[in-house]
Simulated assay, not measured.
Amino acid sequence: MDSRNGHVEGGKPDGESLPELLRSWRRRMNPRAIPGLTVSGRRSEGLTQRDVARLTGVSERWYGSLERGKEAAYSADFLDRLSSVLGLSRTERHALYVRAVGHPPALAAVPEAGAAAEMDEVLQKFLDSQAPNPAFVTDLAWNMIGYNGPCVDWLPWAAYQANQMRWSFLVPEAREQLVNWEQDWARPYLGQIRYERAHHPKNEALRQLERDILAGSPTARKIWDRREIVEHVDGDLRRLRLPYHRGREVAVRIIAMRPIRSDLLRVIVLMEDCPRADDD
């Protein structure tokens, strides 16, 4: 039996179907806890199909097809967005993949072992201490290896062993959420990738990152030909338009640093830049 119809390899019980699981996961969500959703006048608890479609950036018809169990080439990006919106655990995300596309999620970007080992309790406490500002840690190839609670609130994709650069260039929603995407984000990011590639020419993760982004984004290929080099974006002011802020633009100051004890890690804090009262 096809795993998309409920069967799981290894002799495990079939369990609930994909439509049953999705309906259950929708109904357990509290729409009042999700910024930007209109909840007045609702007759039932949980998220509607329309809510989920809006939050994942697809049409209601497209999401409805998935919830009816229709087989299609659902992308990993869409399934990960859906996992974030529905607040799925790792086990539930695994079940979603198996039932939707017939196989478990792949680890598209695995943090390097050396960098992951450097992510210790002390560094995690530092990230947590940055609240309410989002803070996270990546390895040289921008694979997420640590983050605090506000980071996941602002950027839900960070919870799934994500890669900062792949999300920025290969996920369509990034162009809406990173305001002035090409000039303020894409160009500096590609300059940083070129800088790290020059300083770590044998790093296979960086090489693969470059290949993936240039293969998946025509705009990135055009910008890459400018041969711009950027060491870091520490102190730069950028704007975000995230679902967490209900579509309101938020200015952030990017604080970038590396621990003295390790050249494998990159620590980023997004400090919200609030206008002073006398600026009004």
Rank of each mutant, 00 (worst) to 15 (best):
P156E: 06
F78L: 14
L21H: 02
D184Y: 08
D280V: 02
A174G: 11
R246A: 15
G149R: 14
P35F: 12
S24C: 03
P201M: 01
R90E: 14
P35E: 14
Y160W: 15
A100V: 01
L240T: 02
Y189C: 03
R187N: 01
V137A: 07
A198L: 14
I268K: 05
Y63N: 09
L190I: 05
Q49A: 01
P19V: 06
P105W: 04
V122W: 13
Y189D: 10
E272W: 02
R221S: 13
D236I: 02
V171N: 12
R226Q: 15
K70L: 05
R166Y: 06
W185L: 05
P156K: 11
G146C: 03
A95D: 11
V267N: 03
G36S: 11
S40R: 15
A106F: 00
L79S: 03
D279E: 15
T219Q: 13
R32K: 15
L127R: 00
N5G: 08
V233W: 08
E60I: 12
T38Y: 14
P218S: 04
E45I: 08
E228Y: 00
N30E: 14
S168V: 02
R221M: 02
G41A: 10
E173R: 14
R166A: 10
E173D: 15
V122P: 08
L242G: 03
G10H: 07
A186V: 07
E228Q: 14
L86I: 04
I213C: 00
R27Q: 14
V233S: 11
Q164V: 10
A76K: 04
V137H: 05
M271N: 11
E92R: 01
